[in-house]
Design a protein around this nucleic acid. Sequence first.
DNA 1: GCTAAACTTTACATCATGTAAAGTTGACGT
DNA 2: ACGTCAACTTTACATGATGTAAAGTTTAGC
Lengths: 196, 196
Amino acid sequence: MMSSDRPPTRDRILDAAIELLQKRGEKPVRMSDIAKAAGLSRQAVYLNFPNRADLLMAAVRHLDDKQDVEARLAASRAATTGEERLSLWVEAWGNYIPLIHGVARALMEMQSKDPDARAAWADRMAGVRRGCAAAVAALARDGQLTADLDEGTATDLLFAVLSVHGWETLRLDLGWSQEKYLDQMKRLVRARLLAG
Amino acid sequence: MMSSDRPPTRDRILDAAIELLQKRGEKPVRMSDIAKAAGLSRQAVYLNFPNRADLLMAAVRHLDDKQDVEARLAASRAATTGEERLSLWVEAWGNYIPLIHGVARALMEMQSKDPDARAAWADRMAGVRRGCAAAVAALARDGQLTADLDEGTATDLLFAVLSVHGWETLRLDLGWSQEKYLDQMKRLVRARLLAG
DNA sequence: GCTAAACTTTACATCATGTAAAGTTGACGT
DNA sequence: ACGTCAACTTTACATGATGTAAAGTTTAGC
């Protein structure tokens, strides 16, 4: 009686969750908020997702699909020099953060109480770290990695500098534009990682 | 009947809270946990502090007193060159993070739900940013600030790089030692902020 | 017109914070 | 001794969110 043609319920829930989490003004987004936004009862949400953490992780994956993460990463992998690759990586991930930020934040907030959410997010961050490692490896391969940094340390540093929290601080708390953020992150990372 | 001689109840609560928050294995620290650790009923805690956020902020101030924050900062202010001052500031704040980390984390976790906690923490962070600004100003005064950075941007960058979250990532998630953390933060910051 | 899937409604368990109020205890002054 | 005050305990309850449970309703498809 509510859906005339198609958008599968599950996707409607995820879309609703994502939209709410992106514009969340002050108040935390509850399961009932998501249900309402999706035009469903709260229970119907639990019919599709066992719990909040699962819903949020599904939302992240849903975003990955919609935003074609692979294509973004392919661009950075196509770089010819390590230096170029590093910049493209900073840009790719830096431009992805705003998209997942709402969901990411909700997930991070759950980490203290929900061990599953913690594990799921840690896993995801491990993926990001691999992206950092690949960029650093390309740099090292080209002999462009500063002499006083080993690859592991450089990777950790890059990963820490490109954290979602860091983005939040600069972009939201301190009011930087996305362009400024990207520009400065590239400069910061190059200043520290690049040889010469 | 419980306190033979002196330690004022209020301080016992704060000390208990601080200790619990520093070693918190997995589980969040509840008001009842703090009460138990202080040898009191949960209600007695509410007799001393109106709510959790207030207790945590009091704990931060309690730590400030015990650790003599002013003395630490004085050391960095005593620096002769801007460059030296920057390093001393990174060291002072970087060495303070582990002390407040437990309490800070609890406070940060409350931010999403409790606007008061959010304001209180924001205020505190503003203080840290002022510390960053002072270090950057000293650098600029000595003509040692890189030409392509204005003081505001440099301050924001320094502040973001020295975040509690960044420390957590490197120190706890990635297993860095405190020495490595301090050393690398100094290098990172110098690489980006210092002229030449 | 039957069935099954998708949903709604209602109700309840749990858990932590915070409020409320009445009872206990011990130190202290007079 | 007596009373009183402050610091505490005990018990009880409100709230707000997640999550579980179960019975009822609607709709599409056959």
